[in-house]
Amino acid sequence: MSAFSAVLKRDLRLARRAGAGASLGLMFFLVLIAIVPFAIGADQRLISRLAPALLWIAALLATLLGLDRLFQSDEEDGALDQFLLSGASLTLLVLAKALAHWLVTGLPLSLAAPVLGLMLAIEPQAMLPLALSLLVGTPALTLIGLVGAALTVSLNRGGLLLSLLVVPTAIPTLIFGVAVAKAAAEGRDFAMPLTVLCGTTLFALAISPIAAALALRQARG
């Protein structure tokens, strides 16, 4: 467990040093939302209808952004070899990195979503369910991305390939995440999609760290 918290603290410190890690992801999120009216016009009603989908797609893109460097920097400075030599459970260490990544991307996005929702004229009663869906769903995006990051760890320009590998697997999360917000906006019951969304996150939590650890171990030969 001490290895877990050590990795977690180290990654959070690194994120802070690298130019305010959490706020940078947030700014990217904001920029994406800000260009929406320029792309689809200032039609308030249309934007309001698209808002849940836009926020979710922006969250997916913002999550993908830093993923390709998640393990690469560790591989370059030798930290990955240290992990492997330390004898600590690689799965647990991978999980710590995922938690650190989510704390600086998914969590701030979820908390900022209601404010950005205001800008996109989202229905008031959908505000909290939308934030809740992001809070529950973004861990799944990070965990799914983890596997892609581990698979492309040895590649120099893995970013595009990583997106290609990760996005299809993120479809269920996207479907049920948007469904929660949409149902809430239309005043329907959103318990069912929210439950399934929790299910996809738990499933990703069960599978992804193991797959990512396996991929990392294979990549080191």
Binding site: V147, L151, L165, P168, T169, I171, P172, I175, F176, V196, T200, F203, I207, A211, L214, A215, Q218
Partner: peptide
């Protein structure tokens, strides 16, 4: 590994779609 990850996810994707 990627193939197996895909195989595990395909039924879930099918269901959600």
């Amino acid at each position: 590994i990627l193939t197996l990850v895909g195989a595990v996810n395909l039924p879930i994707i099918k269901f959600s779609v």
